[in-house]
Design a protein around this nucleic acid. Structure first.
Length: 138
DNA sequence: GCCAACGTTGGC
DNA sequence: GCCAACGTTGGC
């Protein structure tokens, strides 16, 4: 089991929209590091859904539901995507502010590489954030 | 709206 | 293969 974090601007594609849709393909990534992270995902891996620009918090947990495949919106054929489906919203969303203030989370890629839209999360970080956000998975 | 960080492009 | 110029992301 691996853990990830994916960013989306809520006015482009929000958590609420994901709930409505039931699933989505994560198209539009044009960054090798982000794309490679998606390549490394397995079915059932869990994903924090983060709202960038507006909101600035982790609002829900999603699950990888389809392995990396070519992004049809990328004409160059260099980048791919995965599908995800929503699992659960956070009863208490975890803000970037909190993550920055918490020493144990200071090494998160979200903080260190603020421009990376798909990043890995360690098991330790995952557990801390779940606890803070008061989310119980199954 | 500004700007720092950083990825990409293209000339050499 | 280097690096300046440029574009984009995203927090503030």
């Amino acid at each position: 089991m691996k853990y990830w974090l994916m960013k989306s601007e809520p006015f482009k594609y929000s958590w609420e929209q994901l709930i409505k849709d039931g699933w989505t393909h994560w198209d539009g990534v044009r960054n090798y590091q982000a794309s490679n992270n998606m390549k490394a995902m397995s079915i059932g891996d869990l994903v924090f859904f983060y709202h960038s620009n507006k909101g600035l918090d982790i609002v829900g947990v999603a699950e990888v539901s389809k392995l990396y495949y070519p992004d049809h919106t990328d004409k160059s054929g260099r980048f791919g995507m995965v599908n995800i489906k929503p699992i659960k919203p956070f009863p208490s969303p975890v803000s970037l502010k909190y993550i920055k203030a918490e020493k144990k989370l200071a090494d998160m890629a979200l903080v260190k590489q603020s421009r990376l839209s798909v990043s890995p999360v360690t098991e330790k970080e995952w557990k801390i954030i779940c606890k803070i956000g008061k989310i119980k998975l199954k």
